[in-house]
Simulated assay, not measured.
Amino acid sequence: MGIIGRAHGRVDDPLSMDAGNVSIANLTLRPEVVWALDADTVADSRSQFSFAPRAICERSIATTRTENCGGGAELGLSSASDDGLSAAEFRIIMDRVGSSNRSSFAVNVEHRF
């Protein structure tokens, strides 16, 4: 089943689009600060909290050229077991670039046998 397009009284079946060449560039600056939650130093810690402010600039070139900059933040929480065989990490990212709001999260659980 194809997609049917209607505009100005005309019908196109199946609908197709040729965007030609599209070029996308993205630059992200992301310094990260990590705090130990269960020890005096990060190197000795098995549980850590992290914060990373983000500065982002993007450029896309298709039929028009668009450039947007913005920023956001990333928060993370990670923990490892006493024996080092198990680890878990949770990260949430929130950004605003141009007029676009973006958010994502990641969960990683690892166990070595």
Rank of each mutant, 00 (worst) to 15 (best):
M1E: 13
M1H: 11
I3K: 10
I4A: 09
G5R: 08
G9H: 01
V11P: 04
V11T: 15
P14K: 02
S16L: 06
D18A: 12
G20N: 05
N21T: 15
V22M: 10
S23M: 09
A25G: 15
N26Y: 10
N26R: 14
L27N: 06
L27R: 07
T28P: 02
L29A: 09
R30Y: 07
R30S: 11
P31R: 00
E32I: 04
V33M: 13
A36D: 01
D38F: 00
D38C: 05
D40V: 05
T41E: 07
S45P: 02
S45N: 03
S45T: 00
R46H: 03
S47E: 08
Q48P: 05
Q48S: 11
F49Y: 06
S50T: 06
A52F: 04
R54W: 08
C57M: 14
A62E: 09
T63Y: 12
R65H: 12
R65V: 14
T66V: 15
T66W: 11
N68T: 14
G72C: 05
A73Q: 10
E74T: 08
L75S: 00
G76S: 01
L77S: 01
L77P: 00
L77G: 01
S79W: 14
S79Y: 07
D82P: 13
D82C: 06
D83S: 06
D83V: 05
G84H: 03
L85R: 15
L85W: 13
L85G: 05
L85A: 13
S86V: 05
A87I: 04
A88Q: 06
F90K: 07
R91G: 02
I92Y: 15
I92E: 02
I93Y: 03
M94A: 13
M94Y: 11
R96S: 07
V97H: 01
S99K: 13
N101S: 13
S103M: 13
F105W: 11
A106D: 12
V107M: 12
V107C: 07
V109I: 15
V109F: 13
H111G: 06
H111S: 13
R112M: 09
